[in-house]
């Protein structure tokens, strides 16, 4: 082994080690957030978001360690699918949580959605029907 490849290997190993540790730290953050945050919405922040960075770092470390180019497209596709699905699931759970009042109003500094929902419920009568535009319909 000549000295040059040795240093390149060391650098790649060091970078992927840092990526793996920081990526795992993000998963730890999710766990801590789930335990510590007070209501469903704030827990959603902790549960879904650190995965964006955490998964990115873990996949990048994996790609660096595999040393073959054809593994990169799979990793990129995996990450993009994660990016596409995370906001959708977070939105659906958050929306359902808001509607079923799984939140602590005293922990909100402002709630600009409440008035709109009240108004929509008032003009249409209270129904369980969730149209495409539940709020702000005139």
């Amino acid at each position: 082994m000549n000295p040059e490849t040795f240093t390149v290997d060391t650098v790649i190993d060091a970078v992927s080690a840092v990526f793996l540790v920081v990526g795992s730290l993000m998963s730890l953050a999710a766990a801590v957030g789930l335990l510590r945050f007070p209501d469903l919405m704030t827990r959603m922040h902790a549960a879904t978001k650190p995965q964006v960075l955490g998964l990115f770092l873990l996949l990048a470390a994996l790609g660096l360690q595999m040393r073959t180019w054809w593994v990169w497209p799979v990793l990129v596709v995996a990450w993009i699918f994660q990016l596409l699905t995370v906001p959708v699931s977070a939105h659906m759970v958050g929306r359902a949580g808001y509607r079923t009042k799984h939140l602590h109003p005293e922990l909100l500094s402002t709630d600009e959605l409440e008035a709109v929902v009240q108004q929509a419920a008032g003009t249409r009568g209270f129904t369980d029907d969730d149209g495409d535009q539940p709020a702000g319909r005139r």
Binding site: M26, A29, F37, P38, T42, K49, Y98, L108
Partner: peptide
């Protein structure tokens, strides 16, 4: 975007560890 995600990830980690149950949030239009 990547820079913002990195900064915000650590902010959420800090909030989870330091503020925890007392964190104040808002719904903004």
């Amino acid at each position: 975007f990547l820079g913002k995600v990195v900064v915000a990830s650590f902010q959420v980690l800090y909030l989870a560890a330091a503020k925890g149950p007392k964190v104040i949030s808002a719904v903004v239009a």
